[in-house]
Amino acid sequence: MFFQLLINGLIAGSIYALIASGFSIIYTTNKFVHFAHGSTATVAAYFLYWIFSNFGLPLYLVFPLTILIAALFGFLVHLLIYLPLKKRKSSSVILLIASLALMAFFDNLMQLLFGADVKILSIFPHGKGIEILGAYITPIQIVILIVVLLLFFGLWAFSKYSKLGKIMRAVSDNPELAKTTGINSIRVQHWSFVIGSAIAGLAGILIALEHNIEPAMGTHLMIQGFTAAVIGGVTSIPGSIVGAYVLGLTENFGIWFLPSGYKSAIAFVLLLIFLIIRPQGIFGINQGNRDQKM
């Protein structure tokens, strides 16, 4: 049972990681909660479903296309909704409310266009999982694990070595100061939405294959995604992936002893614990004791 719980935890963690990492990129750069991030994944999933059901395009075209659409979606949301609000000096609370409105709008739109019932995406054959050490894992689950691992290393390298990663953190810290050092803050913010939403698109594809498609699929995962980002440390993009695995494993080992219905409660309890004891998360930077007059 241990190995099955371990695998269950890793798979759950991987799915949370897909949502958390994209969200983390957007949050660390823009410093407000983009709740509609889950909807980006949902829109991507439905787009995939629509293309797959109506056009006989090959998969190697459809998957990248879906990711592009997701990136475009995120970009437009930032350009048309958030940016005008930011120009009017809206507080992050206002932006959060706007993101909630966007989330409700797009989730409902998907329901209106496609119906509320669960859509099944039969792209790959289903069947019994592969047995490893007495536990079962399906091919799609293996793919998800590998993808997330690659994503983790990619984001870690990005954060540590690429200038854009540092620039994003600078912009998130102080967009005005960034501008005076010659950084085009607005363009950097655009990129954060493009990259973050592209990852959400990838999330939408993988979640659709593993859990099927329904209007609230992305939004449901935002709670865990957000929790994972907090646990990992909101200033650390790869940290959000670690946080996701911590969450996934805790949830799945937790229910060894508790009734399974408590799984979501575990997410909330972890979130609370971190917010109270270590709000900067595992990898977040301790802001130091000096008085910040910045």
């Binding site: 990005f158 690429s162 200038k163 854009l164 540092k166 620039i167 953190r169 600078a170 998130s172 810290d173 102080n174 005005e176 100061l177 960034a178 050092t181 010659g182 950084i183 085009n184 363009r187 950097v188 990129w191 200033t235 930077i285 802001q287 910040q292 007059k293 910045m294």
Partner: peptide
């Protein structure tokens, strides 16, 4: 004084070098 709280001294000094080219690929 305005500096980036979450970055190191090295980050700051690297950041002021040549920001003309904001092309994504080049910076990654």
């Amino acid at each position: 004084v305005r500096l980036f709280k979450n970055l190191t001294i090295l980050d700051h000094l690297q950041m002021v070098e040549d920001n003309k080219d904001m092309g994504l690929l080049k910076n990654i």
